[in-house]
């Protein structure tokens, strides 16, 4: 019975491990890759690898296993990218401006955003979260909160003005 509870080959336990570590792992991978899509893919790959080796990994070591696999995948992908890049440069030298819009989001900046959200007025925060996290349109938010679309836009605008100030001040 005790064995059963800790066996991650059991779908229930596997799901529990996913629910416990997936978010952290994705976060960890995001800061490595600086790309949400790759972080998501590699996170999934790591869990699939865990499932394949579920009989060899214990419940307690699952977390470090996942992060190690994630890290190894990161290294492999980066190595592969380097090879590609070398070849690319050899052929076309003028494509150095890979992406001028590339923005690095550091861990500290995310913490600042989190703090800034907490510092918003309740009304601003409500609109901000509905819009950004729940992906609702301003029109839908207006109906939900029983205010005009203008008012929603005003709160969102205010929220962004404030967040820009707060995230900047701390730097």
């Amino acid at each position: 019975m005790d064995n059963d509870l800790k066996n991650i080959c059991k779908p229930k336990n596997f799901k529990f491990i996913f629910k416990t570590y997936a978010k952290d792992l994705k976060r960890f991978l995001y800061f490595k890759f600086n790309d949400l899509e790759t972080a998501e893919d590699v996170m999934q790959d790591a869990f699939i690898k865990l499932w394949k080796n579920c009989d060899r990994v214990s419940f307690e070591t699952a977390k470090s296993y996942l992060f190690t696999v994630g890290n190894n995948l990161f290294i492999n992908i980066k190595k592969h990218e380097q090879v590609i890049r070398k070849n690319k440069y050899r052929h076309t030298k003028n494509t150095t401006n890979e992406s001028p819009e590339f923005l690095l989001i550091e861990k500290e900046f995310l913490t600042k955003i989190e703090n800034a959200i907490a510092d918003l007025s309740p009304k601003q925060r409500e609109v901000f979260l509905l819009s950004r996290i729940e992906k609702k349109k301003y029109r839908e938010i207006a109906i939900l909160l029983d205010i005009s679309v203008k008012a929603v836009e005003k709160r969102m605008h205010g929220a962004l003005l404030k967040m820009r100030k707060i995230t900047d001040l701390n730097s």
Binding site: L36, E101, L103, I105, F109, L110, I113, E114, R132, I133
Partner: peptide
């Protein structure tokens, strides 16, 4: 621009 990207990342995570 940075704030927008940051918000996008924060919300996705």
């Amino acid at each position: 621009k940075k704030l927008k990207k940051g918000i996008e990342v924060f919300c996705d995570l």
